[in-house]
């Protein structure tokens, strides 16, 4: 049970502002896509449009090749997992999970069996007779997932479902979501503002900002070869150097650098700055260092631009000493045009 989703030139306006500006997006059947962006970027609006809770002002939404633009949520082959789960508090877990099947007219015995099967998949079959308030946050989240999947949707829509969980539980649920998605093969469209969560689960990440798609690609592409400064920034920490073409390289505040000539901002991730690399950034003095377990997070002041700070992740074994002067190197440089 899976289908592709095609979003064609979709625009959505609320009374006073435009939430989405002519979005085009194709999602393959069985893909795990994450809509990523800060709050107010339009990602939840887009999800509501796909789920049928909103009708776009313009454009078309196709699911499995059929035009669903004006079809209500009830008749769409989608189900939504809500941010607050919306589990019915007066029903047992079994009845919650079986609700969609009941609406389809399935007899009690058959739908109970199916509900138990879904609960077993999320590891809660022993609590089938309980009511939602007896569960922890993570358990409720699992029930909501089971309920949404029991209706056998072609596309599952997840609206920040892990937002209410603590960090450790969130990481665990990310793994679980991913493995369940692989098993059932349903198309998952997941909304979040947490870029680490996006990278952990997505086949493809759609970075959104101010009602537009900034970048759409695999986690590696989006992280290592961002297309815009916004998505580069949003995906993680960044050292930013303004550069302009100079001969066969570029001119920067640190002096000339041997990278392909281009005008804009040179972006270097902290882990791409270190004591080795593909090109020299010149000598710098270590001003601060902190141990993060997997690496040392260090601030360097370049000797050629003492007011600047470069952040670098040095490996565990290095023993950085405050005040030491070293030569820094960079790799994987990306130069992006400054935002208009």
């Amino acid at each position: 049970m899976t289908a592709d989703v095609e979003i064609r030139a979709v625009e959505h306006r609320f009374e006073l502002f435009t939430a989405l500006h002519r979005i085009d997006l194709s999602i393959n059947a069985g893909e795990f896509v994450v809509l990523l962006g800060p709050s107010g970027c339009g990602k939840t609006t887009l999800l509501s449009l796909i789920g049928g809770f909103l009708t776009p002002s313009e454009g078309q939404i196709l699911i499995g090749g059929r035009d669903m633009t004006h079809v209500g949520p009830k008749l769409r082959p989608t189900t939504t997992m809500f941010q607050d789960y919306a589990l019915f508090p007066h029903m047992t877990l079994r009845d919650n999970v079986g609700f969609g099947l009941r609406m389809r007219g399935m007899a009690r015995r058959a739908r109970d069996a199916k509900a138990m099967e879904m609960l077993a998949m999320v590891g809660l079959d022993d609590k089938a007779g309980r009511k939602p308030h007896a569960l922890s946050g993570g358990q409720r989240q699992r029930v909501a997932l089971a309920r949404a999947l029991a209706a056998e949707p072609d596309v599952l829509l997840l609206d920040e479902p892990l937002g209410a969980l603590d960090l450790k539980l969130r990481r665990q649920m990310q793994d679980e979501l991913k493995s369940i998605q692989r098993r059932v093969g349903t198309t998952f469209i997941h909304v979040t503002h947490d870029q680490e969560e996006a990278m952990a689960i997505a086949d493809r990440i759609v970075v959104m900002n101010a009602g537009k798609i900034e970048h759409c690609g695999t986690p590696e592409e989006v992280y290592l070869r961002p297309r815009t400064l916004f998505s580069a920034n949003f995906m993680g920490e960044l050292n930013r150097l303004p550069v302009r073409p100079d001969g066969s390289g570029v001119a920067s505040p640190l002096g000339p650098l041997p990278v392909p000539p281009s005008e804009g901002i040179l972006c270097l991730r902290p882990e791409s700055v270190g004591l080795t690399g593909s090109f020299s950034l010149g000598r710098a003095r270590l001003t601060e260092a902190a141990f993060f377990g997997a690496h040392h997070r260090c601030h360097f002041a370049p000797l050629s631009a003492p007011d600047m700070r470069l952040v670098a992740h040095l490996p565990q074994g290095s023993h950085p000493e405050i005040g030491a002067e070293v030569e820094l190197f960079g790799r994987d440089p990306v130069i992006l045009p400054e935002a208009a």
Partner: peptide, 26 residues
């Protein structure tokens, strides 16, 4: 939460079923 009604509708409940099975008990 408005999501109760949305969830029920999403899972295929008619407007009357939403009221009878979800809103009324709540």
């Amino acid at each position: 939460s408005p999501n109760y009604a949305r969830a029920a509708e999403d899972l295929g409940a008619s407007r009357w079923q939403v009221i009878r099975l979800v809103i009324l008990p709540l």
